[in-house]
Structures are given as C-alpha cells and as structure tokens.
C-alpha cells in the first residue's frame, strides 16, 4: 500500500479548507493593513506636531507671524492662501464645469463630439502638476504681468491670481466627472413630463434637472475643492512664496502645501519642523473631512 497521501475526499476537503482559510485570512490581513496604514499615518502626523502644538497652541491658527528666527509660528497666511486660491479656483471652474457637464450629460450624450470632449477632459486630468506649473511659469505669468503693468501694480506675475487660474484648470475634470454622471443618470420620466407640458430645454434644465441633481453637483464641487486644497507643485511654482497675508488678488502669498514643500527639508529645530508637520496635519484633517462629506452625499444619491 502506498505511503503517500491518497487523494481521498477527506484529504481533499482538508486541503481545500486550508487554502480557503489562507485566502480569506490574506484578504482580511490586507484590509486590516490598509486601516492600520491610514491610522498610523494620522498618528505620525499628530505626534510629530506635538512640539509645535505645545509651543504655539491655538495662536497657530490665527497668528500672522511665521518667524523661524524668533520661533513664533502662526499659520494664518497659509490658511488664508490655501482658502483664497481654492475658492477662487472653484469660482472660476464651476461655470465651465457645469457647462461641460450639461454638454456631455444632457445635450450631446452620444456621438463623436461628446467622445472627443470627454477624452479631452480626461487628458486635462492626466497632465502632471509640475507640467501645469511649468507651463504657467512661461505662458500664464507673462500674460498676468502684462495685465499688472496695465493696472499699474507691481508686475510680479506670480501670486494668488495666477495660482488660482492654474488651479481652476486642474480641478475642472474632477468637478465635471461627477456632475456629468448625476446629470446623465437623471430619470427621464421627470424630464419627459416637463417636456410634455411644453417646457423648453432650458426650462427643463433649470427647473427640473438642477434641483434634482443639486446635491450631486455639490458633491462634485466638494471633491474638486478637496483636490484644490492639497495641490502642491503647480501652486508652489506660481503663488509667489511670500509668507504673509495677501492684501489683494494679485498679491503674492503662500499656501499650506506650498510652504511644506519649500521649508520641510530645512526646518532645523524641533518646533520649526513640528510646525510644518502641524500644517500637514491640518491639511490632512480638512481634506479628509471634505472628501468624506462628498462621498457621503454620493452614497446618498445612489440610494434615492
């Protein structure tokens, strides 16, 4: 009789159940590791910020002085810069995003034009940030400079305005993609009822579609906002890197992501590095909240 293991039913199902267990455990481990990774990331940021939290307390958020020499760190200039550039970018991008979303989701749902436009918008999202910054430096800045000379203000070229313009181009694809989806997925019976009552297309869009998809549009804008808040390279090349509150749209300023990129590798002293990490922590938390709210809204939409 053979000493080797016979492939009996009992052996076979044991082998299978071992592989099953192995498989399910592996999957479970992977999921757990992802959770651990993210929690550890947050904790790392928190712990490394502690020297700064201790030294600066709440004045970190409203302090205007970022002074590595005296050790006084107030992050207000960067908070202001980030919020200004992001909201300005949203302001510029939203009309275009809604227009394209309507174009692709309502007017031209199929056809070559629509495919072409869709591909172009995808391409916009594919261009790396550093190339946007590079192009902005050599094409956008000279134009803004000419504008500033005409308006008789210092022709820096770089500043909040230029950074916002580039940012608006970069976040358009994100706002468009979600908006287009919700517009396209709008149930047709509501629209058809309105048409049956004699509404024009414009009126249907304004009075039927918009109210229905408003939360979806809002979620798309939120996601675009999340993207804008964290954008680093293009902004740091165009925003002017001035650690002060900007006093006008054309003034140079700085954003949270940009100051980290500028100063992280050289922050000597425990409080200085911790202050930069604290800015990173703030970014992490704010973007996480915005993204989660946006995703919540989307999930809500999926069930209505």
């Amino acid at each position: 009789m053979n000493e080797t293991l016979k492939l009996t039913d009992a052996n076979w199902s044991k082998a299978i159940s071992r592989k099953e267990k192995g498989f399910t455990i592996t999957l479970w481990l992977v999921a757990i590791s992802v959770i651990i990774l993210v929690m550890a990331a947050f904790l790392t940021l928190l712990v490394q910020s502690i020297p700064s939290i201790k030294a600066n307390g709440f004045s970190f958020i409203y302090g205007r002085m970022w002074n590595p020499i005296t050790g006084e760190f107030g992050a207000l200039p960067f908070l202001a810069g980030t919020l200004l550039t992001s909201f300005l970018a949203l302001l510029i991008a939203t009309p275009f995003s809604i227009a394209v979303a309507l174009f692709l989701g309502e007017y031209y749902k199929k056809g070559m034009m629509s495919q072409l436009l869709k591909n172009m918008i995808d391409l916009l999202a594919a261009i790396p940030s550093v190339i946007y910054g590079f192009w902005g430096l050599f094409v956008l800045i000279p134009i803004v400079r000419k504008l500033q000379i005409a308006l008789d203000i210092p022709p820096y070229g770089v500043g909040i305005f230029s950074a916002s313009v580039i940012l608006s181009i970069m976040i358009m694809p994100y706002a468009i993609s979600l908006s287009r989806q919700v517009i396209q997925m709008m149930p047709s019976d509501l629209k058809e009822a309105a048409y049956a009552l004699g509404a024009t297309r414009f009126e249907v869009i304004r009075k039927v579609i918009f109210p229905h998809v408003l939360s979806g549009l809002f979620a798309g804008i939120l996601l675009a906002l999340g993207r804008a808040l964290g954008e680093t390279m293009a902004v740091t090349m165009l925003v002017g890197n001035t650690n002060a509150l900007p006093d006008s749209i054309f003034a140079p300023g700085n954003t949270m992501a940009s100051v980290i990129a500028n100063e992280f590798t050289e922050a000597t002293g425990a409080v200085y590095s911790a202050a930069l990490v604290e800015i990173g922590l703030l970014l992490f938390v704010v973007v996480a909240i915005i993204n989660l709210v946006g995703k919540r809204i989307i999930k809500h939409l999926a069930y209505t």
């Binding site: 479970w28 999921a31 757990i32 992802v34 959770i35 990774l37 993210v38 929690m39 990331a41 790392t44 940021l45 999340g226 808040l229 964290g230 954008e231 680093t232 992501a257 980290i260 990129a261 992280f264 930069l276 990490v277 990173g280 970014l283 992490f284 973007v287 996480a288 915005i290 993204n291 989660l292 995703k295």
Partner: peptide, 24 residues
C-alpha cells in the same frame, strides 16, 4: 465591519495631499 472601516480608510488615503504623503 472591517470592510466598512477599510472603505473609510481608503477614502481618507485617497484624499491625502501628496506633500503630506511625502512627510509621512
């Protein structure tokens, strides 16, 4: 439950600004 937390973690991870990932 793990899947729900994992989903949450992935959403958070997706949003982390690239410079913050550099810090981490």
């Amino acid at each position: 439950k793990v899947a729900r937390y994992c989903d949450l973690a992935i959403d958070v991870l997706q949003g982390i600004p690239s410079i913050v990932i550099g810090i981490i």
